[in-house]
């Protein structure tokens, strides 16, 4: 009988041990992690971020214990230059964030995790008394009242490859407004070309030289660093849909109908994850698209997204500098490639 008792004790002891390890472990974890927020990254189809809103007081550290439940994700704060964290499935990453200014911040996944990747966004609400934060300045496209949804193809395009170097030779002939930043921001290359075409000082130049001038003006309004920076941003965030070469043939938009300016104006309908009504982005290497849009319009598209096309809104994600760089890079698709016959 004593033996039987001993056997029962052993069984109880072993089973208790098996149960105690996870229970005590879990308790210890929650004690250690008193002020820690556990955040699980999941594909949008699997539920997205486990928390959609995180609240924290201004100036107080926000400790995050982040992991992924399915595939590789990233963790990044919108409109900041902080490097993103890589979130590997089953592994935990710890980070501490401190927000000094009250307001709403966006946290987002920066690694493509499926066609709905961009929906993986959440909000960090920073509360505090000192409401010192200033409202963001209005984006240019709103100030100028540009309708970014109306068809915007270029009225005219160059008939042969442009050369900014050649354009530089004629800079002394240019009117003052042509070199102003405001003109660049608000005017599409095709519009500026048509305006300059009417200038008497340039009347003798052939059309192609005039296009070279436009290319040179666009080059003057950007820097090499911006283009390189923009290229990185494009590869990371845009190429999955717009294609690595900008042709609008990215891996995420395969099987979608080809972009058509006619259906680009479908109003304020937000498309759900079904992808219904989504289209392929335009081919940026066809100059008819990019030469018809101004930097302000591109900025608007990036900030607000393309209603009804599937183009996400990047306003809460990119800083203004990042958007400027991206725009600089986008125009290189139109300038660097041979003019395509759009007929």
């Amino acid at each position: 009988m004593k033996k039987e008792l001993l056997a029962r004790l052993i069984i109880i002891l072993f089973i208790s041990l098996a149960i105690a390890i996870p229970v005590i472990g879990r308790l210890k974890l929650s004690v250690n992690h008193n002020n820690v927020v556990e955040l699980h990254a999941r594909m949008p189809e699997n539920g997205g971020w486990s928390l959609s809103t995180i609240e924290v007081k201004a100036g107080k550290p926000l400790k995050l214990h982040i992991t992924s439940d399915d595939v590789m994700h990233g963790f990044s704060i919108g409109k900041s230059d902080q490097p993103a964290l890589e979130i590997t499935p089953g592994e935990f990453v710890d980070t501490t964030l401190i927000f000094d200014t009250p307001g709403r911040y966006t946290f987002y996944c920066d690694r493509w995790c499926g066609p709905n990747h961009w929906r993986m966004r959440g909000t960090i609400v920073v509360t505090g008394d000192n409401q010192t934060s200033q409202p963001e300045p209005q984006p240019l496209f709103l100030k100028l009242g540009i309708d970014i949804d109306s068809p915007s193809d270029a009225e005219t395009i160059p008939s042969k490859p442009v050369s900014a170097e050649n354009g530089a030779k004629f800079q002394h002939l240019l009117p003052e407004y042509a070199l102003q930043r405001d003109t660049y921001n608000a005017t599409s290359p095709a519009k500026l070309w048509m305006r300059l075409r009417k200038e008497s000082t340039l009347a003798n130049l052939p059309d192609s030289d005039l296009w070279d001038i436009i290319a040179w003006i666009w080059q003057q309004n950007t820097t090499n660093d911006q283009v390189i920076n923009g290229q990185e941003i494009f590869a990371k965030n845009c190429a999955a849909c717009h294609g690595e070469t900008g042709e609008g043939d990215g891996v995420m938009v395969r099987g979608l109908p080809v972009w058509d300016p006619g259906n680009h104006n479908s109003g304020n309908v937000m498309h759900e994850a079904t992808g219904e009504g989504l289209v392929r982005p335009p081919d940026f290497t066809d100059p008819i698209h990019l030469l018809g849009v101004s930097p302000a319009l591109l900025e608007g598209k990036i900030i607000r997204g393309g209603m009804g096309t599937g183009m996400p809104y990047w306003g809460p994600i990119f800083t203004n500098q990042q958007i400027d760089s991206l725009i600089s890079y986008l125009y290189t698709f139109a300038w660097n490639t041979r003019a395509k016959n759009s007929n």
């Binding site: 995790c113 849909c241 891996v251 995420m252």
Partner: peptide
């Protein structure tokens, strides 16, 4: 290596050859 949905890798047995690709970044 072209990833079409999420981040994938490519590791070849017997060769010390490995690639890792994000969608949009060959």
């Amino acid at each position: 290596l072209v990833s079409t949905d999420v981040v994938h890798g490519f590791s070849l047995d017997g060769y010390n050859f490995e690639l890792k690709a994000d969608p949009g970044q060959t």
